[in-house]
């Protein structure tokens, strides 16, 4: 019983260090095999960001009244680990004119689990379908019943969504509403 630490066991223990080290070194190439955008030995690298391909333009005359809205598809290229290397995605979006003359331009992809949400004008309909009665028109996701208040920066007023939907960067140029880019994050 006193021979727990023999020469053989000690040598075995010392020998295991380089073997374990080699195995640890093999994790990085394997990770890079699965996700080629990771830099070598950088295990904590953040997500790959998509690239915006075209701007979307609307004529301001399409929005004569408050809460008039237009839906559009915004084209983005995402990294994809195939031979082609990238995938073209259509990100659905809404541009809504607010009563104060400003615009609310949001991606329609719910920040909760990626469903596509709707623009619901009638508060009664929201109260019936989404368990919450808002003051005005809202974005409401049918999957898990999240409701976003468009008049307060897309604040989550009901449901499990952890944050407001992602915003599009836009500006008004003359008589055009120009939507140029999308706030990053989330799964498309």
């Amino acid at each position: 019983m006193m021979h727990l630490i023999t020469r053989r066991n000690l040598l075995k223990a010392i020998l295991s260090i380089p073997i374990l080290g080699t195995l640890a070194m093999a994790i990085s190439p394997f990770m890079r095999f699965l996700k080629p955008t990771i830099e070598p030995f950088n295990y904590m690298q953040g997500p790959d960001l998509p690239e915006s391909l075209e701007t979307v333009m609307f004529d301001l005359s399409l929005f004569p009244n408050a809460f008039d809205f237009q839906s559009f598809n915004f084209i983005q290229a995402n990294k994809e680990f195939t031979a082609l290397g990238r995938q073209i995605n259509k990100i659905p979006g809404f541009a809504v004119k607010l009563p104060n003359g400003d615009f609310a331009v949001y991606s329609r992809i719910c920040p909760h689990l990626g469903c596509v949400f709707n623009f619901v004008k009638d508060p009664e309909e929201v109260a019936k379908g989404y368990n919450f009665k808002p003051d005005g028109p809202v974005f409401a996701c049918p999957c898990h019943l999240s409701v976003f208040d468009i008049q307060h920066d897309g604040k989550v007023v009901s449901g499990p969504a952890p944050r407001p939907p992602r915003k599009f960067y836009y500006k008004v140029e003359g008589t055009k509403l120009v939507i140029s880019d999308l706030e990053s994050g989330g799964v498309a």
Partner: peptide, 27 residues
């Protein structure tokens, strides 16, 4: 969103490894 796991990006990396990219597609 967990305190210690946040900076490791283990969640996003898992998701992107499963999807083979940033979105659902051929990969």
């Amino acid at each position: 969103q967990f305190y210690l796991l946040g900076p490791t990006h283990v969640g996003v990396n898992t998701s992107q490894i499963l999807l083979g990219g940033s979105s659902i597609g051929q990969a």
